[in-house]
Design a protein around this nucleic acid. Structure first.
Length: 329
DNA sequence: CAAGTGCCTTTATC
DNA sequence: AGATAAAGGCACT
């Protein structure tokens, strides 16, 4: 009786934790959560709220302090990669005036340490979609196939397991906004389920070997593989090349790639796998073992300086819109 | 407001 | 090998 009562009490209590950030090793929470690497976060006034694994929590930054509710400090430190030595990483990737400009603009943007399965499926879904649409897809998948978790008066959904997605129908997945990607997600989930393959085990392999394995899954090309390796499998040397990075390279690094390649891709929206290899190789060779960080700074700079401000504001807080649309699913 | 373009690409086909 | 087309629908102009 007493135990039950006290347990209930614990459930209702908001545990607030505050940690001080090292002045020399910055974090920019806003840039980190709105730059399009993770799709489960929304901002409400000053607070970001989201779910990591089966832990929903909210978090905000006050200068050099991080304040969060209902999350272990260890979880937060790990998810935001607070152990990454940013000054050292900046020293490594600071190879030219343009990357230096992006570093000064967004200093504190960090790569997140996401769950490999959620990350893989997210980026299979992300192909040829924009960020707001991706967020909607991932929310829909979670709401339909994940577990509901209540926190205060809010509801969160865990990302569905391989089994949960493997048992879905193509049509159900397509209805979550996946369209033709539904087949890829279903095939990949079925394969992971059948083989019992542990994506975590890829952390032990080299970048090249791990990438090879990922490329074997349905709907996974070089771009999706690189994103999964960078954002969830500890391969900070991965350098995903999407349309924005392609534009950044042709604009600021025209002399670093073959003339032929530059001319072929400079006025097209898509590019071949041979071209992907060229651009990917440039990034990895030019920026070195933390090329992934360079990629994320280039990507965020390109999007925030090219796109209208209204769009940027939009995906800082679009959860209310999502909720309305999702009622129709 | 309708129509058009673009989207953190992959796969299938030739 | 290398080029090309198709894909399903949302976001934005």
């Amino acid at each position: 009786m007493n135990e039950l009562a006290s347990f209930d009490n614990v459930e209702e209590t908001v545990v607030l934790t505050r940690i001080r950030l090292d002045d020399a090793c910055p974090l920019d929470l806003d840039s980190t959560l709105c730059c399009g690497q993770a799709f489960r976060w929304t901002k409400h006034r000053e607070w970001w709220q989201g779910i990591v694994g089966d832990h929903p929590f909210r978090i905000h930054q006050i200068h050099n302090a991080l304040e969060f509710e209902n999350a272990d400090e260890q979880l937060v430190r790990s998810y935001f990669r607070l152990e990454d030595n940013l000054p050292e990483i900046f020293r490594q990737i600071d190879k030219d005036p343009h990357i230096r400009k992006t570093i000064h603009r967004f200093s504190g943007l960090r790569i997140l340490r996401q769950d490999p399965w959620e990350c893989l499926v997210s980026y299979i879904c992300a192909t040829y979609k924009n960020v707001p649409a991706i967020k909607l897809m991932i929310y829909s998948l979670s709401a339909k196939f994940g577990n509901k978790i209540r926190l205060g008066n809010k509801e969160f959904y865990t990302f569905p397991s391989p089994a949960a997605l493997a048992h879905a129908s193509t049509k159900e997945l397509a209805n979550c906004g996946l369209g033709y990607r539904a087949r890829y997600v279903l095939e990949t989930a079925t394969e992971i389920c059948r083989s019992g393959f542990e994506l975590e085990s890829l952390k032990k392999l080299s970048y090249g070997k791990a990438k090879e394995v990922l490329l074997g899954f349905s709907g996974v090309g070089p771009k999706v593989a690189d994103c999964t390796l960078l954002f969830s499998l500890e391969k900070l040397e991965a350098f995903p090349v999407d349309i924005w990075i392609k534009r950044a390279i042709t604009k600021y690094y025209a002399n670093n790639i073959p003339e032929k390649t530059r001319l072929r891709i400079s006025n097209t929206t898509s590019f071949s796998s041979a071209d992907y290899k060229q651009l990917n190789q440039f990034g990895r060779e030019h920026f070195g073992k933390y090329a992934g960080y360079a990629q994320e700074y280039l990507y965020h700079y390109e999007r925030t300086t090219t796109q209208p401000q209204s769009l940027h504001e939009h995906f800082l807080s679009n959860s209310e819109d999502n909720r309305k649309r999702l009622n129709q699913i």
